[in-house]
Design a protein around this nucleic acid. Structure first.
Length: 596
RNA sequence: CGGGGCGUAGCUCAGCCUGGCAGAGCGCUGCGUUUGGGACGCAGAGGCCCGCAGUUCGAAUCUGCGCGCCCCGACCA
């Protein structure tokens, strides 16, 4: 590509709406353009990067034995009603109707469609196992798009779906995808940490997320400093700090005027936060139901309620905090709520910490008063005692029981799920087994956000001057910068010859042949971030050399003109080879240990 | 959906408080000088000042109602 002909230009100033450095550089470099909130166009440079990322994914999916398909984005709404996910996804699902008023949705994901496709074309256990994948545009009406390409409403996702005869087969398919993901992220130069994750609204049991660690991330993950345990805090298990042991004592009321927070309560009474019980009220809409039920959640004062875990403890539910009117309606006193004497229909759910800790201070359900020596089982009983608290930095690891948990923010780059029979049940899918009886296949699904890989790669591979793409996903392999060629016909002819020779060697080349000053060209080259830069000039031509510079490396070096093509080919290969180890090294630096 | 901020040239922004010619820098077009890390001169093009309704002799500016975009929270297969 001759830059004089390339559509899109670099911006000298930072665009106003850019939040993260990577977002700003993608906008400044002329890679992307925002059309509306959460919707982006890809200019030629951006489209090339996107295609490169997709190609890496495609190669690794194919290597893992998956087969590519193309699925409709436009889908009948009945499919979503059948699995119950129309209600479950709610406003996130983009809905529309055709001229005959038939209801449709723009696919936010494709479990329903792929399961239907499988049902229509697989009839025998001999058709198993099979893994199908697609790299396509998906649509979600997100409540709040954010972070440039991180959370958008129209995006490209690779989704793979596996079908197996039994759960051992599923484990094998899952493992193959897991390994493919490790290779994909490594090849794209994006460090990721695999963590245990909540399965969320998609259903199924057992899932892992690949988290790209960054302070601007939406997720918080914890990881052990001694063993391999790492988990999203939505899911993370932990050992609760030991309770202060004492024999159960008699309940007594204590006046606590104006003391409505745990911190204030502990200070006022001269006790530790873990000697108190904390109550939080929610309205929960349970799975398959319309109206909400009131929920009284209790955790020990030193812990926080984890709404995801709480929702799971309720068997799947949408939660929102109670409003004041509801608090009053159910006879609760904010700041002084007591688990003793909570009346139906309020459901009381307690964290295990509360059941294990004797003589806690809890509210008296009367403004200005608390109760000392409240004991679970003796004084009150929760309907469910479960893990509903959030793991925090400093907590003990539940896996090795030795290490301490640290935490980091991060962005979810990919997610692998064991769906099992969720969709084959709701969509009534079966094939015949060897005995001639019906066999229900077990499923897995495996997603990767393409734009998120681009954003993460840009976030990691950049400096003050601009982007510095990994060779695997750079828009071009080499950036030729022509200097002073307008005044030197021979040098220009030689530059053109080199441009052609690089192409013949199979390289993708961008050639800055514009009538610009050298500084502009060098700065644009740094901003655009192609991994290798070749400077061709009148001066270099006279000396029989070109200058080769690695974008993410040191100084430019002189290479004999005759060796130029070979040098570029060799450097490029070195860069590609280094990628598989680079991500692992960055991850190791970030977490102090290789997370397996 | 709550809270906050912002909509003026392609981009970054002044102007608004205190109503009276629509501006700057960058970018863009032409000519000339320049040419190894974002040059300079001259001459230009480019605007429904987000929209609608008010107030006023007069509105980018004041008021109301919308719409859009960004941030925090809620939400997030």
């Amino acid at each position: 590509m001759r830059m004089s002909r390339m559509f899109g230009r670099t911006l000298r100033e930072m665009p106003g709406d850019a939040e993260t450095p990577s977002h700003a550089l993608l906008l400044r470099g002329g890679y992307i353009d925002q059309l509306m909130s959460g919707v982006y166009s890809f200019l030629p440079l951006g489209q090339r990067v996107k295609l490169k990322v997709e190609q890496v994914i495609r190669e690794e999916m194919d290597r893992a034995g998956a087969q590519e398909v193309h699925l409709p984005a436009l889908q009948p709404i009945e499919l979503w009603e059948q699995t119950g996910r129309k209600a479950q996804m709610g406003d996130v699902l983009f809905q529309l109707s055709d001229r005959r008023e038939r209801g449709m949705a723009l696919g936010p994901t494709h479990e329903e469609v792929i399961t239907r496709l499988f049902k229509d074309h697989a009839f025998s256990y001999r058709d198993l196992p099979v893994t199908l994948y697609q790299i396509q545009t998906k649509f979600r009406d997100e409540a709040r798009p954010r972070g440039g390409l991180v959370r958008v409403r129209e995006f490209t996702m690779k989704d793979a779906y596996s079908f197996d005869a039994d759960d051992d087969g599923l484990d094998a398919s899952y493992a193959a995808m897991f390994e493919a993901y490790r290779r994909i992220f490594a090849r794209c130069g994006v460090p990721t940490l695999p963590v245990e994750a909540d399965s969320g609204a998609i259903g199924g049991k057992g899932s892992q997320e690949f988290i790209f660690p960054t302070e601007t991330g939406e997720d918080t993950v914890v990881f052990c400093n001694r063993c391999t345990y790492a988990a999203n805090t939505e899911k993370a298990a932990f050992v609760r700090p030991a309770a202060i042991v004492s024999a159960p004592a008699a309940i007594e009321e204590v006046e606590t005027p104006g003391v409505t927070s745990i911190t204030a309560l502990a200070t006022f009474l001269g006790i530790e936060a873990k000697q108190t019980a904390k109550a939080v009220f929610y309205m929960a809409t349970l799975k398959g139901q319309r109206s909400g039920v009131p929920v009284f959640a209790v955790v020990r004062g030193d812990l926080e309620v984890n709404e995801i875990k709480l929702a799971n403890a309720l068997g799947g539910a949408e939660l929102r905090p109670m409003v004041d009117a509801e608090v009053a309606e159910y006879g609760l006193v904010a700041g002084y709520a007591s688990p003793i004497g909570v009346l139906a229909p309020v459901r009381v759910i307690a964290d295990t910490s509360v059941a294990e800790s004797p003589n806690l201070v809890a509210g008296a359900n009367r403004a200005g008063w608390h109760l000392r020596n409240v004991n679970h089982d003796r004084d009150w009983q929760a309907e469910v005692v479960a893990d509903i608290a959030t793991a925090q930095v400093g907590h003990r690891c539940a896996q090795c029981e030795q290490g301490t948990l640290g935490s980091t923010r991060g962005i979810e780059m990919g997610h692998v799920f064991r769906l099992q029979y969720v969709y084959t049940t709701s969509m009534d899918v079966s094939v015949q087994d060897a005995q001639g009886t019906q066999l229900k296949p077990t499923m897995g699904c495996y997603g990767i956000g393409v734009e998120r890989i681009i954003a993460a790669a840009a976030e990691v591979h950049r400096d003050d001057a601009g982007l510095a793409w990994p060779a695997s996903i750079a828009p071009y392999d080499v950036h030729m910068v022509g200097i002073g060629l307008d005044r030197d016909e021979a040098a220009r002819a030689d530059a053109d010859a080199l441009y052609d020779a690089l192409h013949e060697a199979g390289l993708e080349v961008i050639f800055d042949d514009r009538d610009e000053r050298p500084g502009v060209k060098f700065n644009d080259a740094d901003l655009i971030g192609v991994p290798l830069r070749l400077t061709v000039s009148s001066r270099n031509h006279a000396a029989g050399i070109v200058e080769l510079k690695v974008r993410d490396g040191g100084e430019a070096s002189s290479v004999a003109r005759a060796e130029a093509v070979a040098a570029v080919v060799a450097h490029r290969q070195t860069l590609l080879d280094s990628l598989t180890t680079e991500a692992a090294e960055i991850a190791a630096r970030q977490f102090g240990s290789d997370q397996g």
